[in-house]
């Protein structure tokens, strides 16, 4: 439910990302045939890919442990997501894996990088936009 809420939060901001020459892309780590269902469930129309090996997650240092996935705060966040209608179906991917955000330019510089600290923690779309607004060419 937390992942669904995270992606649902992106949808109203998609046009803002495009206006600022930022290509918004979601990457998960489940099997590729779960992408279509995830797209239909979230309504996200942007690009979605998967890295089933999670090598990219490892290289970027994204967390992977039980305590960052299951604690009182993550349970509260999960409950909030459930109340807001972002119910979770079966998990397609590694349940202990955390994610993050990286912005990479064609010159391979990294103007923004965020490592999620626990389930339910993620960089708000407005923060990503503010940090990158007007900085990239179309």
């Amino acid at each position: 439910m937390i992942c669904r809420r995270q992606v649902a939060d992106l949808i109203p901001k998609q046009a803002d990302f495009e206006e600022n020459a930022l290509k918004l892309t979601v990457i998960g780590n489940g099997n590729s045939y779960f992408i279509q269902a995830f797209r239909e469930d979230t309504g996200f129309q942007g690009e979605i890919y998967t890295d089933p090996t999670r090598q990219s997650y490892k290289l970027l240092g994204f967390k992977k442990d039980v305590t960052s996935s299951l604690n009182m705060k993550t349970l509260k966040t999960g409950l909030k997501g459930l109340i807001e209608g972002h119910s979770q179906k079966s998990i397609q991917g590694d349940p202990w894996q955390q994610g993050g955000v990286i912005v990479i330019t064609p010159e391979q510089s990294v103007p923004f990088f965020y490592v999620n600290q626990e389930a339910g923690d993620y960089a708000p779309p407005n923060t990503i936009l503010m940090e990158n607004k007007g900085r990239h060419r179309k």
């Binding site: 992106l10 290509k23 990457i27 489940g30 045939y33 797209r39 955000v101 990286i102 912005v103 990158n132």
Partner: peptide, 25 residues
């Protein structure tokens, strides 16, 4: 979603990419 394999670099080759790595699908 069709299982076609790409290099990650293709995502930021021509335009700045915002890559949102989610926990799972």
């Amino acid at each position: 979603e069709k299982g076609t394999v790409f290099k990650l670099k293709t995502l930021w080759k021509e335009q700045t990419a915002v890559l949102i790595f989610v926990r799972h699908f």
